[in-house]
Design a protein around this nucleic acid. Structure first.
Length: 496
RNA sequence: GGCCCCUUCGUCUAGAGGCCUAGGACGCGGCCCUUUCACGGCUGAAACACGGGUUCGAUUCCCGUAGGGGUCACCA
């Protein structure tokens, strides 16, 4: 993972040095997923990535990745690795090596200076203290605070030479701006609501607002699909885009699609309290399959008629951003588990065996695990349940007997086990059919239901009250192990 | 608080003026299958936030109300 990061860095610095805007003029669709590496890839981010990926694939376009690491204090290398790891797992890596935003600071500053030179931006010498004081004053008078810098229209000749300044955009003060959002529909904001936000900080570094716009432009991004917490930013970013378009042309408005955030079960924004975990937790701790999370996330906030089970290819064919719901959807673990159970049953047995083995205590046999999978996977919803269900296969004698199973092993039951032991020990074939014939015949002879034999058998063989079918268990365990486990619980048997 | 957005069963959703007696899925209840647990099948309860319009006719269009969410940094 770290080598990939290093490679990406190299590619980026070359790209930023040559400054070759891909000119978003017309042609193919280009989307992007742009997380800031301040933590793991959370479920909401994964869904945003998914929608970008699907939209691009559906339209035969390109899907790119950009790491927004301009916040040097909060961005970390492990977070970058975790995000790539999560995307990789879900099959949502970009079509090209990721772009790293911080590496492109010079290009961002260059754009700010063009805006400055063309009069679309200005140097503002207001200090943070002055701003804070004005903000407080506005608060005290209970009126909304808008930055009105006296430097906006200052005579360039009178500008201080040795004081720090920030570069602010000159936002229009009248009129209104409408965004035709592909998810939300038309959204209109009065320009008076937008104030002169900062492009370049006093230390010369670009702000997020500037960096996003410049990077999207240079990467040729045509469709900006992201969380709807960015709606307000879209209007500000459009200001920069239109200013640059006026300055040098070739800066078309992107198409926006602001998808709703995912909420917790209580309807509030998903937070750690709700289990807003990284996708790695769904994989490692909860034992979720990537195709299940993919399907779940897709159906969360989007639907296609009555269809519930939707695979990758089908999703690409059907995905339509206009059908993404406008309201926030709540995360429902029960439904995810149900879907996971479905994909578990569909999954390849050897693959499942490999996924389950590390979750089991002690030694396991991949071959036996694989052979047991068909009867094991139908009764599990996640890999942990699958591992628990497989435990009996590798348990060492003497078997730990679960209290509920113990209750099944009465005196009569133990006596019965002795008879079963002798009877099946004499069976020359150890197959599903042969064992079934023998045991059913025996039950009939004794005038008992098969359950009377099967239940104590299950307890003796697995130490539990639930397991795959009893004949499956016998065959999986094999003749020697089965007879030994039965003998251990039967009365009057010499334990091997 | 200002601004922006949202609102169909508990949850995810279908629905784009008559197809709606509002459909599907998860979850929940019942039945069947069955040696247990599952899987599977059948089945039941369960929703158009409220109030006004527009219309011959509104879940669907418009306006209010209520509720919810987002956003208001030299963070991203």
């Amino acid at each position: 993972m770290l080598t990939i990061v290093a490679d990406n860095r190299k590619v980026v610095s070359m790209a930023s040095a040559s400054v070759t805007p891909a000119a978003a003029g017309g042609r193919g669709v280009v989307t992007r997923f742009a997380p800031s590496p301040t933590g793991f890839l959370h479920i909401g981010g994964a869904r945003t990535a998914l929608f970008n990926w699907l939209f691009a694939r559906h339209h035969g376009g390109k899907y790119l990745l950009r790491i927004e690491d301009t916040d040097r204090a909060r961005s970390t290398e492990p977070a970058i690795a975790a995000i790539f790891d999560g995307l990789e797992w879900l099959g949502l890596m970009g079509d090209e090596p990721a772009t790293f935003q911080f590496a492109r600071s010079d290009r961002h500053a260059e754009v700010a200076h063009r805006l400055l030179a063309s009069g679309h931006a200005y140097r503002c010498y207001l200090t943070q203290e002055e701003l804070a004081a004005r903000r407080e004053a506005a608060q005290a008078e209970r009126r909304p605070f808008r930055i009105h810098s006296e430097w906006r229209d200052a005579d360039p000749a009178t500008l201080p030479q040795d004081r720090p300044f920030v570069v602010r955009i000159k936002a229009p003060r009248d009129g209104e701006t409408t965004i035709d959002d592909r998810v939300q529909g038309a959204i209109t904001v009065s320009n008076a609501e937008l104030d002169d936000f900062i492009l370049l900080r006093s230390d010369g570094t670009p702000t997020y607002m500037l960096a996003v716009v410049v990077d999207d432009h240079d990467m040729g991004v045509t469709h900006v699909i992201r969380g709807d917490d960015h709606i307000n930013n879209a209007f500000r970013q459009l200001l920069i885009i239109r200013a640059m378009d006026a300055v040098e042309g070739g800066w078309p408005d992107p198409v926006y699609g602001h998808v709703p955030l995912i909420h917790g079960a209580d309807g509030a924004k998903l937070s750690k309290r709700h289990g807003a975990l990284g996708v790695d937790a769904y994989r490692d701790e909860m034992g979720i399959l990537p195709e299940a999370l993919f399907n779940y996330l897709l159906r969360l906030g989007w639907g296609h008629g009555d269809d519930e089970i939707i695979g990758r290819d089908q999703a690409v064919e059907w995905f339509d951003i206009a059908h993404v719901g406008k309201g926030a959807a709540r995360f429902d673990m029960a439904k995810l588990l149900n879907l996971n159970g479905h994909y578990l049953r569909e999954a390849d047995d050897a693959r499942l065996a490999a996924l389950v083995a590390p979750r089991m205590a002690g030694e396991t046999d991949p071959d036996l695990l694989t052979r047991a999978m068909p009867v094991l996977k139908v009764r599990a919803r996640d890999l942990n349940e699958l591992a628990a269900g497989a435990a009996f296969l590798f348990a060492k004698r003497p078997l730990a007997i679960d209290p509920k199973a113990e209750a099944l092993l009465s005196e009569e039951a133990r006596a019965l086990l002795a008879r079963i032991h002798d009877r099946i020990a004499g069976s020359h074939e150890w197959t599903l059919e042969a064992l079934e014939t023998v045991l059913k015949g025996m039950a009939e002879e004794l005038g008992l239901g098969l359950g009377k034999l099967a239940q104590p058998l299950r307890a003796a063989l697995t130490g539990q009250t639930t397991s795959p079918g009893i004949f499956d268990v016998l065959v999986l365990l094999g003749r020697d192990e089965s007879l030994a486990r039965i003998a251990a619980q039967a009365t009057g048997k010499v334990q091997v």
